[in-house]
């Protein structure tokens, strides 16, 4: 019963946050000023009439409350507005860019959490060992290295080829332009392009996860139930994986999901550096072009995914941790 109430409260909370984001999004982007005018420089013989027409077309001539109602209605119908810059529906622009990002973030988050957790477990288990100290130094280094800098170094080393490094990988992009691969060849081509951004993104976030996992495991390993298990003759392997890791994973998982917002911001840099045509690159170019409808759509999407991820985390947490279920 209490579990149900917990779930309902979490879902309600998420919906409220989303509603807030929706409203905030609307007013924030109205507040930055009328973007129509700067689109028109370079237009042959634009008239004031045409400007008005464009404003009307974009719904910018209505009173603010009406614009808001319009906006909410449209958003729920999946219409996120019309890109000033690409002159296409925002939903179409975003839809065309979403998969590369999901692929990149998905795979690299999987890899960085899996690897980070794994390294963290080993570090925690052999705390103070050479491995632990080496990994600590390594992960702190990768964690603190700015992504753009790291990315540029990697491009120089592996894409352009400097000194002893041969130019192994493409400098950027999602696929070999114009190759027209299909099927497996296409998959391999995309993976080949993804190696470097994947590598940088994974390494950038690895440290965070391994550090959290390490300290979380150390804490768990100090608990009496671990000693109890050992005293009862539980094998070391099961002490770790049956008792310590499941308990230590919970905080790591929460952080991983909370981290999503940061990963999204990191992916903007990475996509820009590697010309990876995903949402991050779209964000960067839309900022440049002052393409507010697209930014608005992206902001909504990013916020919604972070909120939903948090909700999923809460629900998972309640499933995985019996203590929360009752709370």
């Amino acid at each position: 019963m209490s579990t149900r109430r917990y779930l309902i409260s979490k879902v309600l909370q998420a919906i409220l946050t989303l509603a807030f984001v929706l409203a905030f999004n609307f007013f924030l982007f109205r507040a930055v000023g009328d973007p129509v005018t700067q689109l028109l420089r370079g237009h042959s013989g634009i008239s004031a009439q045409a400007v008005l027409q464009l404003q009307r077309q974009l719904g910018l001539d209505l009173p603010l409350p009406q614009q808001f109602v319009h906006y909410v209605k449209e958003t729920f119908e999946g219409h996120l507005g019309y890109s000033y810059f690409y002159n296409l529906p925002v939903s179409q622009v975003i839809a065309g860019r979403i998969w590369p990002t999901i692929l990149l973030i998905g795979l690299s988050t999987l890899a960085s959490t899996a690897l980070g957790i794994w390294i963290g477990i080993r570090q925690g288990w052999r705390r103070g060992s050479k491995y632990d100290q080496g990994m600590l130094a390594f992960t702190l280094f990768t964690y603190s290295m700015p992504e753009f800098w790291f990315g540029l170094l990697i491009i120089m080393a592996f894409a352009v080829g400097v000194g002893p490094f041969p130019a192994l990988f493409p400098t950027g992009g999602y696929e070999t332009t114009g190759a027209g691969y299909t099927g497996m060849a296409h998959v391999v081509d995309v993976l080949n392009h993804m190696v470097l951004p994947f590598f940088v993104l994974t390494l950038s976030y690895l440290g965070e996860y391994s550090l959290i996992m390490r300290s979380s495991l150390l804490e768990t390993l100090g608990e009496d139930f671990i000693i109890t298990a050992r005293a009862k003759g539980v094998r070391e392997n099961r002490v770790l994986y049956g008792h310590a890791v499941p308990n230590a994973l919970l905080p790591t998982m929460t952080v991983t999901i909370l981290q999503l917002g940061f990963v999204l911001s990191g992916v903007i840099t990475i996509e820009l550096i590697f010309n990876w045509p995903g949402l991050g690159l779209l964000t960067a170019t839309s900022v440049d072009a002052r393409d507010f409808p697209v930014l608005q759509g992206l902001f909504l999407l990013f916020s919604a995914s972070v909120i939903v991820a948090n909700l999923v985390a809460d629900l998972l947490y309640s499933y995985l941790d019996p203590r929360v279920r009752a709370a």
């Binding site: 608990e223 009496d224 139930f225 000693i227 109890t228 298990a229 005293a231 009862k232 003759g233 008792h243 499941p246 308990n247 995985l320 941790d321 019996p322 203590r323």
Partner: peptide, 19 residues
């Protein structure tokens, strides 16, 4: 030996795996 000798701790909360 571990079967024949058992241990009880000060803090029962910590001594039980919460999961």
């Amino acid at each position: 030996y571990r079967r024949k000798v058992q241990m009880v701790f000060q803090d029962p909360t910590g001594a039980l795996n919460p999961r």
